[in-house]
Amino acid sequence: MTNPISVQLYSVREHMAADRDATLRRVAGLGYRAVEPYNPADDPKGFRALADELGLTVSGTHAGGLVREPEPGPTFEAVARLGTELAIVPAGIPEQEFTTLDGIARAADLLNGLAEQASGYGLKLAYHNHWWEFEPRIDGVHALEVLAQRLSPRVFLEIDTYWAAVAGAQVPELLERLGERVVALHVKDGPMVKGEPNTAVGTGAMPVRAILDARPDAWRVVEFDSCAGDVFEALAASHAYLTAVRDGRGGPA
Rank of each mutant, 00 (worst) to 15 (best):
P216G: 04
P4R: 15
H142C: 09
R137G: 01
W163V: 04
A34I: 13
A169M: 07
S152E: 00
E133G: 02
R177C: 09
A18W: 08
V155G: 13
G195Q: 02
A236S: 08
V193A: 02
P40H: 00
E116N: 10
V141G: 05
A87C: 12
A105Q: 14
D225F: 06
L123R: 15
L144D: 01
V231E: 02
P136Y: 11
N39Y: 09
E36P: 06
R150L: 12
A126R: 13
R137I: 04
R150G: 07
V187E: 07
L101D: 00
L147D: 06
D19W: 01
Q96N: 10
D247E: 15
V222M: 00
A236K: 03
T84I: 14
E71A: 15
V155R: 14
A234P: 06
G248H: 14
V208G: 12
V35I: 15
V208M: 11
P37T: 14
A218K: 00
D19M: 02
Y241A: 11
A17V: 04
R246N: 09
A63K: 03
G168Q: 10
S11R: 04
L178E: 05
L175D: 08
H142F: 15
V155I: 12
E180K: 07
R154L: 15
R68D: 13
S11N: 05
L101G: 00
A200Q: 11
G251N: 07
T23Y: 00
T57F: 06
A228Y: 01
A214W: 10
T2Q: 12
C227P: 01
G179W: 10
Q149K: 10
G140R: 11
F156Y: 15
Y241I: 06
V155Q: 13
R137D: 02
P197L: 03
V182Y: 01
